[in-house]
Design a protein around this nucleic acid. Structure first.
Lengths: 157, 157
DNA sequence: GAATCATTGTTCATTTTCGAACCGTTTTAT
DNA sequence: ATAAAACGGTTCGAAAATGAACAATGATTC
């Protein structure tokens, strides 16, 4: 194992997230494929599920999925009957996407499957104390905001 | 904005990581492409940089990059002169990969560029207190271990 | 109100990634 | 010692993801 403590703080933070990142990607992809979804499709459902409806534009802004990819992913989900697509009222340019009954059932079931990403996070969750959990979410919030700003920072920390 | 606090703890944790995940993927990909690397190639360098040398097998185990993808990524890096490849001593099956002088310089420079993933994490880093930073790494360690075990958990938390 | 510009989403050609079959090497079993 | 199985890595065809050009709509300016 590499001696991470020798690395600068920022690089170490990057590595820490990278490790989770790779695991998340691996587990999410596995869950998606097992259920006949592409990875972007999984991301779209993940994003829309708690809100029930969103515009395609909004999904693009939040997920950073390139719009050509997004367009195709959404198209597949609509054809599969998991999403309902219609133009936004009073704006024929944007599309509004809503989770269908079938989509809701499908995705709920998918997350509940043994071996799904969610099941692993359930386990991870149990390994954290309440306090750890709360502080983790707070820290993530701060970090996400930093990553979503326009410019990075050259100075080390 | 969705009312995340209504979601179960595990799903909320998943969403929290997902947000960082998408940002990390976006920024890392941007940094990679800007420097003529594919995403897996970036991951390989990221992994090998602090250790200087690793076997290809080891990289595969830690990154979860499919071996066909990994093989091609490594091949490109070798051809570009960033990695040195030779069979492991006493085992003609595995290959040992080492960062070349050029590779080290290249990757170091890449991380230092304005707008690189690392620069964004430097900024994020500054937004955290020492205590937050320490607790974050601890929590990540616990979570990564849970994700890397064989089986997930069906029960909620 | 016509012309120009910006925005949202789609299409399509290209590039990237992946899984399956495969090859050579090492290990295990008999 | 030989056969069989396991392993690490590569190759190659198929599938997925991407960027660039485009079409349709909406906003802005003169």
């Amino acid at each position: 194992m590499v001696e991470h403590s020798e690395l600068p703080r920022d690089v170490r933070l990057l590595h820490s997230f990278f490790r989770i990142h790779r695991n998340l990607a691996r587990l999410a992809r596995r869950t998606a494929v097992k259920n006949g979804l592409s990875f972007p499709q999984f991301v779209v459902l993940m994003m829309i599920a708690p809100r029930k409806k969103m515009t395609q534009k909004m999904i693009g802004e939040r997920t950073f999925i390139p719009k050509s990819t997004l367009s195709q992913a959404v198209d597949g989900l609509v054809k599969a009957g998991y999403l309902l697509r219609r133009p936004v009222e009073g704006n024929r340019r944007e599309s509004e996407l809503a989770l269908s009954k079938e989509g809701e059932a499908f995705f709920g079931e998918l997350l509940r499957q043994e071996g799904s990403v969610a099941s692993f996070f359930a386990k991870a969750c149990q390994a954290l104390s309440d306090r750890q959990y709360r502080l983790l979410l707070e820290a993530h919030q701060v970090i996400a905001e930093a990553l979503e700003q326009e410019q990075g920072d050259k100075s080390r920390c």
